[in-house]
Structure formats: C-alpha cells, structure tokens
Simulated assay, not measured.
Amino acid sequence: MRGLGRRLVQKMSATRTFARAAPYVVPALDRTVHRLTGGKVLPSARMLPGAVLTVTGARTGLPRRTPLACFPEESGTWLLIGSNFGRTGHPAWTANLLKNPAAKISWRGRDIPVRARLLSGEERARAWAAVLELWPPYAAYQARVTREIRIFRLEARP
C-alpha cells in the first residue's frame, strides 16, 4: 500500500475507534486467511509486513499463534511491537515471550525458529525511531498509554 492510501490507513489506525475494534477483527481475519492459504497470505500485511508468532503460553504451556505486524531488519532479524493498538495493557503475547523467548514465526510461508529479546535503553530508542519512520501511528498509541510499549527483536536460531 502506497501514497494516499497508506496515509489514509495510517490516519485511521491511529484513532481510538480503530483501537477498540481492531483487536477483535484484525487477528481473527489474519488467522483464518493465513490458515486457509497455508501460511502464504496475511491480510494485514497489506499495511505493514506481517508474521504469525507461535510461542508457548506463559500460564497454559500451550502453543499460542498470534498474527502480528513485524519489521524485518537488514541484519535478518525482526522487530515486534507490543502496542496492543494503544490499549492500556500489554498484549498477552509479550508476556508469553518474556517467559518463553524460544518461539517460531511464519514469515512469507516459511516457519522460522527464533529467540526473542526485549529491547531496552538506547537499543530500544533506536528501534523505536526506526519503527516510527515506517509506521507513525505507533506514536499515537504510545501517547494514549502510560506503559512503555514493549519492543522485541527476534533472531533466527538453529
């Protein structure tokens, strides 16, 4: 998505109305289409690069699949942003990664084992600046909440 369409989607996604509806609509649609296409299509990836994270649940120990926007880096790593669409609490998948950093992402039809690391300090600040360049609505999400939005870096593991 480019130009005017992208700016319109960014403006809409920064609204409180979007933040109320999106957590119920976007992941359900993404999970369904991703499953039906054998991991080849993720509708939300029309706005941002997307992957499906599979991580062990912190409380249940069961695998949890969550479609997420991600930011691939030139180094072969990915950034995941725990924005929760600007809602007050951290998304559950971030607690799962904190407890179980060994995970898997489905990226462009491939399942890749990864290890997640929560970013902090200067490393987080650099990642946050890079993410805001690509998707400015994250600034609106951060402005609505008192918590610091979590950023994870995923690195492929053997």
Rank of each mutant, 00 (worst) to 15 (best):
M1K: 08
M1H: 11
R2M: 01
G3W: 12
L8T: 14
M12T: 11
T15Y: 03
T17R: 13
A19Y: 02
R20K: 12
A21K: 01
A22K: 05
P23Y: 02
V26I: 08
T37V: 08
G38Y: 00
V41R: 15
V41E: 01
L42N: 03
P43V: 07
R46E: 11
L48G: 00
V55N: 06
V55F: 09
T56I: 12
T60L: 04
T60M: 09
G61N: 01
G61E: 07
L62D: 14
P63G: 11
A69N: 13
A69K: 02
C70R: 05
G76D: 01
G76Y: 04
G76H: 03
T77I: 01
W78F: 09
L79G: 05
I81R: 06
G82S: 12
R87I: 02
H90T: 10
H90R: 14
A92C: 07
W93R: 01
W93H: 03
N96R: 13
L97I: 06
K99H: 14
K99G: 01
A102E: 15
W107K: 03
R108E: 15
R110M: 13
P113Y: 13
R115K: 11
R115M: 13
A116L: 08
L118H: 15
S120G: 15
S120T: 15
E122R: 14
E123T: 11
A125S: 07
P136N: 03
P136K: 11
A139N: 10
Y141P: 08
Q142C: 02
R144M: 09
R147G: 01
R147C: 07
